[in-house]
Simulated scan of single mutants.
Amino acid sequence: CQANYSAASHPEFAKQPEQVRNFLLYKHCRNFTVLQDVPLDKCAQPVFLLLVIKSSPANYERRELVRRTWGRERQVLGVQLRRLFLVGTAPDPLEARKVNWLLELEARAHGDILQWDFDTFFNLTLKQVLFLQWQETRCSNASFLLNGDDDVFAHTDNMVAYLKDHDPSRHLFVGHLIQGVGPIRIPWSKYYIPKIVTQEEKYPPYCGGGGFLLSQFTATALRRASSALDLLPIDDVFLGMCLEHEGLKPTRHNGIRTSGVQTPSARVPSFDPCFYKDLLLVHRFLPYEMLLMWDALSQPELSCGKRTQVY
């Protein structure tokens, strides 16, 4: 994809950090080579919940723990779960060669790697847009989607129980709702968005990108909107923009905690499985913590009292 050098004529262009300049030069690029794809039969059977997990190329340990725990492809309450990881490429060419080899091995072993040949400041937004395009032809029969990071703990059994009360042909987009915030104009911030990128001073409501659930209907609406809107480097905000474009709204789900779990007292350890047994998703977990929590919640004798209510 060739750079759009007309963006460089803007009087504020030269003052921007390198990643913002690159975003402005390449934000029109939406076609990238697929390096790894999942088998054609990934969605051959009806999929109730498709687990769509954003992962960095080198995060092998995280992907392995997801496969062994909440992301295991299986039936829950009589419906099918399927899994795939969305991956770009490593920024350093030597590292990219190594991790691309790793991802090729993973793809052969597990059939769950969807990788494109890009490494940009707006990787996460591109993953969302390219996945929606891929899904239209390869997995449009998925009733619901979990869109999350590879460092979340997802209680997928609880998700299925919750989603069974919903209609995939109606709007659903739930997570940790964020509203009333706008672009950060401080140049040294990770989330810096200058006015050259957007003049808007307030973002539409959106759900934190660590993890959220959506329906088949809403995925189709997002795909339609994403092709009509200019990209934004912050992926969760961009999806909020897409929802607004379609006249839809995200909603809050108290069981999705992308900012972690708060305990009733500082003296109570937050890693007690009883805090997590009724939740849907919590961000962030180390790989070994994910394994421990999955094992703890799988124990039939787990007993919890009122002291482990979360807030």
Rank of each mutant, 00 (worst) to 15 (best):
Q115Y: 06
C139V: 05
R185C: 00
M290I: 05
N100K: 13
D236W: 05
R108I: 10
N254H: 12
A8C: 11
S226D: 13
L126E: 10
S6K: 07
C274S: 11
N22F: 00
K190L: 07
R68G: 11
G247M: 10
L102D: 04
F275S: 08
C304R: 08
A8P: 09
L51W: 01
R284F: 07
Y192H: 08
Q2E: 13
L213A: 00
P93C: 09
G211T: 10
G182T: 03
Q45G: 03
S265Y: 15
F144L: 03
Q75V: 10
R67S: 09
E18T: 12
R82K: 15
L232C: 04
P39Y: 04
C43V: 03
V237T: 08
F285T: 13
P11C: 02
K15I: 00
V152I: 12
Q133A: 13
F271Y: 11
C29Y: 01
L281M: 12
L49G: 07
Y203F: 14
P269V: 11
N59R: 10
L49C: 08
Q2M: 02
K27E: 09
E201G: 10
S55V: 08
I256P: 00
Y206I: 06
K27F: 00
R138W: 03
H166Y: 14
C1S: 11
L50W: 00
Q179G: 07
L280S: 07
F122I: 02
P91Y: 05
E201K: 12
G71P: 05
P183I: 02
D157A: 13
K98C: 03
R68F: 00
T258W: 00
Q80M: 10
P11F: 06
T308P: 00
Q115D: 03
V76P: 14
E301C: 02
L105F: 01
L286G: 07
V174W: 02
Y5E: 10
L77M: 13
G209L: 04
W134K: 08
L177Q: 09
F32D: 09
F32N: 05
L146V: 12
I53N: 11
R108E: 13
L279G: 05
L94S: 13
E136T: 11
E64I: 08
R307V: 08
L77H: 13
